[in-house]
Design a protein around this nucleic acid. Structure first.
Lengths: 257, 257
DNA sequence: TAGTGGTCTAGACCACTTC
DNA sequence: AAGTGGTCTAGACCACTAA
């Protein structure tokens, strides 16, 4: 164990300031140029220190504005309840909560949070939906924000034969969203009944880190959801990427024989 | 969406090479100086590209040796089946598979993979087991390896009033393990019936990274398990830390009303 | 417009690994 | 000894934010 590199030392110092509470969440940390001057290093090195902290998820940077101690977000507990019928059957506005912006949340521009396209099915999508690989399927991609903070992406795939002509296939932003997919399928006589979720965690790609506004060290959780009717007919396959630090998943089941 | 930075582009190109299989796990990626020359950028920029990939866990770097495509371990799918009765009721050796070393796996020294102690209950443990905080509970801690690779830790907590005098409370290493906790509870007239699992992901502490032999960029998944009898009586609370890259969790449930 | 983070260059030195 | 990743300097330009 030799000397720590200067950029590490600066990061250490700032990290200490933060955990000691002398720098509070939301507060701005010194600018790159200030750090460079104070520690007698080049701006590159000072910038590197901030990069390290960003990678650890200790700070967030806002281009042109400054670097800030990261505010910890409230953690949401995701259980089967979020798919409960009463959430999408009775009223119109609120769909299954986890996938939709909450009512108090301002949506960004529609085309950024929701997009519907006809795309060729990838191998995975084709297998799950039982359609030929490469054939057209409807893709509904959305970025979900909560209190202005992006929390996860969710991309659903549907068979054209199931949803053509329904609100789900409407490419106008925002149309399919509020009604949700589940109510539409119920109207079509294909009521969703069973869900399989598969979860795994991994580091984010740099693109995901950017979209979700997280550090590169902050993991994401991949969620693969398959929704079936009572007959076992698959009506939707969905793929989501969640900022792991903002969620807990909860499942309760009976021990099988 | 403007141009991607050169360092990003190089990272993109290498990432594509890797996912296309032209660069295989374990194989060396081009050296910083080679990349710099090939892409006509400075070494700093080429190095930055590798830093990005390292942060994503796509490659690992060995100082003085080179950068290599990360080797991926086989992935296990964990579903409710791993708790199935037939796995712990009939025979003796194999318990619920996920928590135990598989038969073909060499155990390390007993005291490293399994340890039973009487410890004061933490707040969480006390709340779940419904005992006074700080009162003694049995703690059974183990490190689970598979094919010689450590995959996760699992620490169970039991009420002394439930398990005192049973194999679970036997502090000798290896005793409680093979029999598993579930069979013992069944013998005691408290057959496990329902399980609640809560999952979350986070970066590893440096200690966990060492134990699980993973990089600091590779996330871990925390699993909190509560096991109940048919009457809803909690018989076990368990806490595990998994190397995220080695598992997928799978749950199937009916949509609630 | 002034201040901020993001990124780049060209060259340098160090520590480590491999032969 | 040769090759590798890790880090640094000093200065530069760009894109973005805020007043």
């Amino acid at each position: 164990m030799t000397d720590r590199a200067p950029s590490q030392q600066i990061a250490d110092a700032l990290r200490a300031e933060i955990s000691a509470g002398r720098l509070s969440p939301g507060q701005r940390v010194p600018a790159v140029r200030d750090l460079a001057e104070r520690y007698k290093v080049s701006r590159t090195t000072a910038s590197r220190a901030l990069m390290l902290l960003k990678g650890e998820g200790v700070i967030v940077t806002r281009h042109g504005s400054g670097s800030y101690v990261r505010e910890s977000h409230p953690i949401r507990r995701l259980g089967p309840d979020r798919y409960a019928r009463h959430r999408w059957q009775v009223t119109t506005v609120d769909t299954y909560a986890a996938d939709m912006p909450s009512p108090d949340t301002e949506q960004r521009q529609g085309h950024q949070t929701q997009e519907v396209n006809l795309v060729p099915a990838s191998d995975v999508v084709a297998r799950v939906l039982d359609v030929p690989a490469g054939s057209d399927v409807y893709e509904r991609a959305r970025i979900v924000t909560r209190s202005g903070v992006p929390t996860h992406t969710m991309t659903s795939y549907y068979r054209p034969t199931d949803v053509a002509g329904t609100p789900i296939a409407d490419p106008s932003p925002g149309i399919a969203g509020p009604r949700g997919g589940f109510a539409v399928f119920t109207d079509l006589g294909m009521e969703p009944h069973q869900i399989t979720e598969e979860l795994s965690a991994r580091p984010p790609t740099s693109h995901e880190a950017e979209i979700l506004e997280i550090g590169l060290a902050e993991p994401v959780v991949e969620l693969h959801r398959t929704t079936r009717t009572k007959d076992g007919y698959v009506i939707e396959y969905a793929y989501g990427v969640h900022a792991a630090s903002r969620f807990v998943w909860s499942y309760t089941f009976d021990i099988p024989d």
